[in-house]
């Protein structure tokens, strides 16, 4: 029976990968936004000086990890929420009527969604390097660990939302009204130190802040919070959203 559950996780993962490779338009759409921010904002504001930007760190260097985080968070949310489309197009029933546990389905989907979004994050990272961002080679592995946690957190969030949502249109509303402001408030675009006091409170309450800070800290060696605090917050948030996603999904009916 264990092998059947592993098989289920594998096929769910494989399916996400195949769809990712086949639907190029979505890959491009997902990469365009962070890349434009990086290229136009990053290169345009390169000589700017902000409180919190330390010596030797340009605005482009500062922005790049934020864009990596943004692409991962958005792509993972999308991968999680795409359960709604499966419901809409009937494929979910095919999965739910199979003799495998819903937990395996959620795990497979989470791994699949995380894999494709991390690939997208790495593409943005590679593009940043091409634009001249100075990355710390030693921080790459811990950076990827933060990226994986960011992906799990967001896929879990997406699955939880999708299990409670019937209408795919609700998703774009959430992306525009919640996720966009959240990314702006996350220190992806400007340092915590340059924020007004009340904004800083919002930033501390924002899960994306810890994602961005963790990834940035590893990649360019500049933490605003602290690596351990980032890791601890992110680990707990990951646990919460993934458990919520698995629970809500297992209770959803077709």
């Amino acid at each position: 029976m264990i092998s059947l559950e592993l098989q289920a996780i594998y096929v769910m993962w494989m399916r996400q990968l195949k769809r990712f490779v086949r639907v190029r338009s979505r890959l491009i759409a997902n990469l365009v936004q962070p890349f434009f921010f990086l290229a136009f904002l990053g290169l345009g504001l390169r000589p700017i000086s902000l409180p919190g930007l330390v010596e030797g760190v340009s605005y482009l260097d500062f922005l790049a990890p934020g864009m990596v985080a943004m692409s991962i968070v958005f792509a993972s949310m999308f991968a999680g929420v795409s359960i709604i489309w499966d419901r809409q197009f009937g494929f979910l029933k095919e999965i739910l009527v199979a003799p495998v546990s819903r937990l395996s389905i959620v795990v497979g989907r989470t791994l699949g969604g995380a894999t494709v979004s991390i690939i997208q994050g790495l593409i943005i990272l590679a593009l940043s390097a091409l634009l001249g961002v100075r990355l710390s080679p030693a921080g790459l592995v811990p950076g990827i660990i933060f990226m994986i946690l960011a992906a799990f957190f967001s896929v879990g969030l997406g699955i939880a939302l999708a299990s409670r949502m019937e209408d795919p249109h609700g998703f774009s509303l959430i992306m525009n009204l919640i996720m966009m402001p959240a990314i702006f408030l996350s220190t992806a675009f400007f340092p915590l130190e340059s924020m007004a006091a009340w904004l800083r409170i919002l930033a501390y309450a924002n899960p994306l802040t810890y994602i961005v800070d963790g990834i940035r800290g590893c990649l360019i060696g500049r933490f605003s919070i602290s690596p351990l605090a980032d890791l601890a917050v992110l680990l707990s948030l990951c646990t919460i959203t993934m458990a919520a996603g698995a629970y809500l999904f297992s209770r959803s009916e077709v």
Binding site: A8, L92, K93
Partner: peptide
């Protein structure tokens, strides 16, 4: 209830593995 981004054979293979 098919995944139309997969081929016919892949849909069957997905199912058979499940």
């Amino acid at each position: 209830a098919l995944d139309d981004q997969l081929t016919g054979r892949e849909n069957l293979d997905f199912h058979a593995r499940l």
